[in-house]
Amino acid sequence: MQMPMRAAALSLALVLGTGAAPAAFAQAAPGPGAADAVFRATTLGLGAYGETRLAPDIATISLGVMTEARTAQAAMQANAARMGEVLAALKRGGIAAKDIQTSQLSIEPQYAYEQNQPPRLTGYRASNQVTVTVRDLTRLGTAVDATVSAGANQVGGISFGLADPTAAENAARELAVKALTAKADLYARATGHRVLRLVSLSEGAAFTPPQPVPMVAMASARFKEADTQVSPGEIKVRVDVSGVYELAR
């Protein structure tokens, strides 16, 4: 009698086991339409931006020296001598060595072109360009005058910026979120809904464009007439955000 009882117990266990598995699976699997439940909600996708404007506190200026001579060596020697005077003038003006960076150094042959004749070598042109960061804007005009007086004959341009844009970016973020929230409320009211919740919020890269001020190469005599006046004006810091809101009636 013991063997049939064991067989019956084993048979019952198998029946229970096969019956429990479908029940557990039914609980784990999503019900019909549950996977796309989010699409049945009324959602609103919007974008907004915040922008702050403030005075810059640094400037970047590109300047350099261009010299010409009959030979490449003479052109480079003349360029090095004049560039040394320009760098010395910058340092006397309070510009730290770490804020002076060579951006371009070249020497090129120069040719004369005549009709029906092969190009004729006339000499060489050497050019040395540096990018200078000015952290005290009250010295900017004086620095430009001093470098031109020292021999710089190429001034490419000036751009203004912020040494640390963090505070301005955070202020722009707050303005962007306020603008986004106001826009969501407006759309909700216009469509007979109310904002239920913010589903997602994303930010684009903070944008702090440098403010370029184009300049052209000028002879030193032009600067001797009067001190160079530079107006930094204002720069803008912009942050773009986008969000998805769930609406309800």
Rank of each mutant, 00 (worst) to 15 (best):
I235C: 09
T147P: 01
E114T: 15
D99K: 13
M1P: 05
M5W: 13
A168I: 05
L46Y: 06
A150R: 02
I107F: 00
D164M: 09
A80G: 13
Y124W: 11
A226Q: 09
G157H: 02
A13E: 15
G204H: 10
L10G: 10
A75P: 01
V132G: 05
V144F: 01
A188C: 02
G123S: 07
P214K: 10
A9G: 03
Q27M: 14
Y49H: 12
E246G: 07
K91R: 15
E114K: 12
G84Q: 06
T142A: 13
A24V: 12
L198S: 04
K98E: 15
A72M: 12
E203Q: 08
S202P: 00
D136C: 03
E68H: 12
P109Y: 03
G233N: 12
L196P: 06
I100W: 08
R120L: 07
R120W: 00
E169Q: 07
H193I: 03
E85F: 00
N170M: 11
T133N: 01
Q73E: 14
M76G: 10
T147E: 11
G123T: 02
P118A: 14
D164W: 01
L54D: 08
A78I: 11
P214L: 13
R40Y: 12
M218D: 10
L247P: 04
E174G: 08
G84L: 01
Q115K: 10
G94M: 15
P212C: 07
V241K: 08
A226G: 05
V239S: 04
I61Y: 00
A13N: 14
R189Y: 11
G45S: 10
Y245G: 06
G161W: 06
L12H: 06
E169D: 00
G33S: 14
A55R: 14
R6A: 09
A29D: 01
R135G: 05
H193G: 03
L196S: 13
I235P: 02
Q129D: 09
A20C: 01
N79P: 11
R125M: 07
L175C: 07
E225G: 10
K236N: 11
G233R: 13
